[in-house]
Simulated assay, not measured.
Amino acid sequence: MANEVTVPLLPCASIDDIVAFYEVLGFRTTYQQRKPNPYAALQREDLHLHFFEMAGFDPAQSYGSCLVLTSDLEGLHRAFAAGMRAAYGKVLVTGTPRMTRPRARKNQDGLSGFSVIDPGGNWIRVVRKATTEPLPATTPAGRLAKALANAVVQADSRGDVRQAVRILDSALARPQPDDDPVTQVEVLVYRAELALMLDDPETAADLLDRVKRVVLSEEETERAASAYENAADLAAALRRV
């Protein structure tokens, strides 16, 4: 057999909310019904997701999840982020729905990934498709990098934000002279993102101020470009809190 296609079928509390959200991300509705049960089929290029509505369903208690493999991780994230900015004026980083940023995942052989948590509480886990090329070394170098890698597993993969906070706070409380300043920026920005997820805008603002005080060379600033982009999104979210 060949050319088989598997389509995730995920629960939600409101088909209308699901359709509206995924349209923001560039999906189109290929099928929708209200009876005998609310149902919708959504498609974005080769990405297919189907949803069914459940009366009394609580997105906070959802175990719905699926894995999306793509060779253009950054492009897909940029497209989703652009849709969010156009519809909401910002990238959604807190609450439900929301989206994480692409980060290397220690529990996925170092491949980068990000997650979309939709209005139904479903985790759409987008991961870079592995190639036949040998993978680079996946062991993070340095104390802060190891803490960041562990925190990403806890928050972005498991959804345990508070454990990720404990890991990062412990690392930030023990600065070392040889800490990589780029990783320091990445840790501070990620910690600010987690603070917003925990509805703690004051801590998030303080952490973003600390980011501005980290002195980087021109080369280091280029390496930290993604973190600074994330910081700008977080600052925009703070202005709307």
Rank of each mutant, 00 (worst) to 15 (best):
A2C: 01
T6E: 03
L9D: 07
L9A: 02
C12G: 03
D16M: 00
D16Y: 01
D16F: 01
F21P: 01
F21L: 04
V24D: 05
V24E: 09
F27D: 03
Y31P: 02
R34K: 14
R34Q: 15
P38D: 11
Y39K: 04
A40I: 02
A41F: 08
R44H: 12
E45G: 00
L49S: 02
H50N: 13
E53L: 04
P59Y: 10
P59K: 07
A60G: 08
S62F: 08
S62P: 06
S65Q: 14
V68F: 08
T70Q: 05
D72H: 12
L73W: 05
A82N: 04
R85A: 05
A87D: 07
Y88C: 07
T94V: 06
G95T: 09
G95R: 05
P97S: 09
R98M: 05
M99I: 05
T100N: 03
T100A: 02
R101H: 11
R103I: 04
A104M: 08
A104F: 07
Q108V: 12
G110Y: 10
G110D: 09
L111K: 11
G113R: 03
F114R: 04
S115M: 11
V116P: 02
P119D: 09
P119Q: 12
P119I: 10
N122L: 07
W123P: 00
W123A: 11
I124S: 05
R125W: 10
V126C: 13
V127A: 12
R128W: 09
R128E: 15
T131L: 10
E133Q: 15
T138F: 11
T138S: 15
A141F: 07
K146G: 05
A147C: 09
L148W: 06
L148A: 08
A149W: 06
N150A: 13
N150Q: 14
A151D: 01
A151V: 05
V152Y: 09
D156I: 00
S157M: 11
R158Y: 05
R158F: 09
Q163H: 02
V165W: 00
L168M: 06
D169F: 00
D169I: 00
A171L: 01
P175G: 01
P175H: 00
P177W: 01
P177M: 00
D180T: 04
V185L: 06
L188A: 07
R191Q: 13
E193P: 00
A195F: 03
M197K: 15
L198E: 14
L198K: 04
D199Q: 12
D200A: 14
A204Y: 08
A205C: 07
R210G: 06
K212E: 15
R213G: 06
V215N: 13
V215Y: 08
R223E: 15
A224Q: 09
S226L: 14
S226E: 15
D233P: 03
L234N: 06
A235T: 15
A235V: 13
